[in-house]
Amino acid sequence: MRIAVFPGQGSQSPGFLAPWLDVDGARDRLAQYSEWSGVDLIAAGTEWDADRIRDTQVAQPLIVAASLLSWNALPGRDHVGGVAGHSVGEFAAAAAAGILSEQAALTLVGIRGRAMAEAAAIAETGMSAVIGGDEASVLSRLDELDLAPANYNGGGQLVVAGAIGALQALAAEPVAGTRVIPLQVAGAFHTRYMAPAVETLRAAAAEVAASEPAVAVWSNRDGRAIDDGSAFVDLLVDQVASPVRWDLCMSAFADAGVSGIVELSPAGTLTGLAKRALRGVPAVAVKTPADLDAAATLLAADA
């Protein structure tokens, strides 16, 4: 089985959408996505600087829009047997699987980004990546500092979140064998600090229709394949304040016999994780339209 995966926040970079504007219909599609999400996505993806596109309420719609733009341009996507997204990438996965319409996905992710930005403004919080070390020891240290695991990324990478002072204490006295890298994000995503955003998104999600998935789709909650569209949307909502279990998703890919992975734009992060955790499984990162042929070749090989 070949699958498509969709990246999360932090994968964007200044100007990364510029090459995609040469794809037929891209400007019109992005204009529509901008209207639905409430963000000028063409300007954000081609003109705005790193600080401006780091803003949660910009970054989230921008990433999902880029993923869907590249997904629609992907030749042979009918060969994709399953999809998954990392954090906000789950909205792109939901659209690719047919659970949500693109309009619903972009509308909801615009609401999600704004709600999470508002929640992040309530307290001074942040996130750090912890690389290496013994996971049990790291989790014990997090308990001591009242920090929380936010992303279990696999391959020896854990993203943690909480109060800035506690993150600084972790960096000052890291667990043996680890490196602590502060991340340039606005708050403690996927933790209890995001509870207000969950309620906002839940109310909005109640207004959209969910269909049954046309292909396999795995949830960040626990790596399970979900065959009920409404249940997947419920998990999308709850996931705002719960950890991303990408490690369990990758384990599920292995159990399902995944034999190739295509990561949609802005790509690179998830294929990097897969190369460490799913050794021997070919993966293509679709960073620009020039990568579409290689992705199509990978997909066709499993047809």
Score class of each variant (00 low, 15 high):
residue 120 A to N: 04
residue 105 A to V: 01
residue 91 F to P: 00
residue 34 S to L: 01
residue 154 G to Y: 01
residue 286 V to T: 00
residue 25 G to P: 02
residue 23 V to R: 11
residue 146 D to V: 12
residue 155 G to L: 07
residue 7 P to Q: 11
residue 32 Q to W: 14
residue 171 A to Q: 13
residue 12 Q to C: 08
residue 246 W to K: 02
residue 148 A to D: 01
residue 133 G to D: 11
residue 35 E to I: 02
residue 67 S to I: 06
residue 30 L to S: 00
residue 122 I to M: 13
residue 104 A to E: 11
residue 157 Q to N: 13
residue 204 A to D: 11
residue 189 F to R: 02
residue 112 R to F: 09
residue 49 D to V: 09
residue 231 A to M: 08
residue 234 D to R: 00
residue 68 L to E: 10
residue 119 A to S: 12
residue 52 R to Y: 10
residue 264 L to T: 14
residue 1 M to Q: 08
residue 63 I to G: 03
residue 212 E to C: 04
residue 278 L to R: 02
residue 173 E to V: 07
residue 90 E to P: 09
residue 69 L to V: 02
residue 107 T to D: 10
residue 282 P to Q: 02
residue 134 D to R: 10
residue 221 R to E: 12
residue 179 R to V: 11
residue 251 S to D: 15
residue 297 T to N: 05
residue 261 I to A: 09
residue 133 G to I: 10
residue 105 A to R: 05
residue 252 A to E: 12
residue 36 W to E: 05
residue 21 L to A: 00
residue 53 I to A: 04
residue 150 A to M: 02
residue 3 I to F: 03
residue 106 L to E: 05
residue 82 G to E: 05
residue 197 A to Y: 13
residue 228 D to T: 12
residue 97 A to G: 10
residue 213 P to I: 03
residue 192 R to L: 14
residue 180 V to P: 04
residue 7 P to A: 12
residue 114 R to V: 13
residue 128 S to W: 04
residue 164 I to K: 10
residue 207 E to T: 15
residue 235 L to S: 09
residue 288 T to S: 08
residue 18 A to R: 15
residue 286 V to R: 00
residue 84 A to C: 06
residue 176 A to R: 14
residue 282 P to L: 07
residue 286 V to A: 03
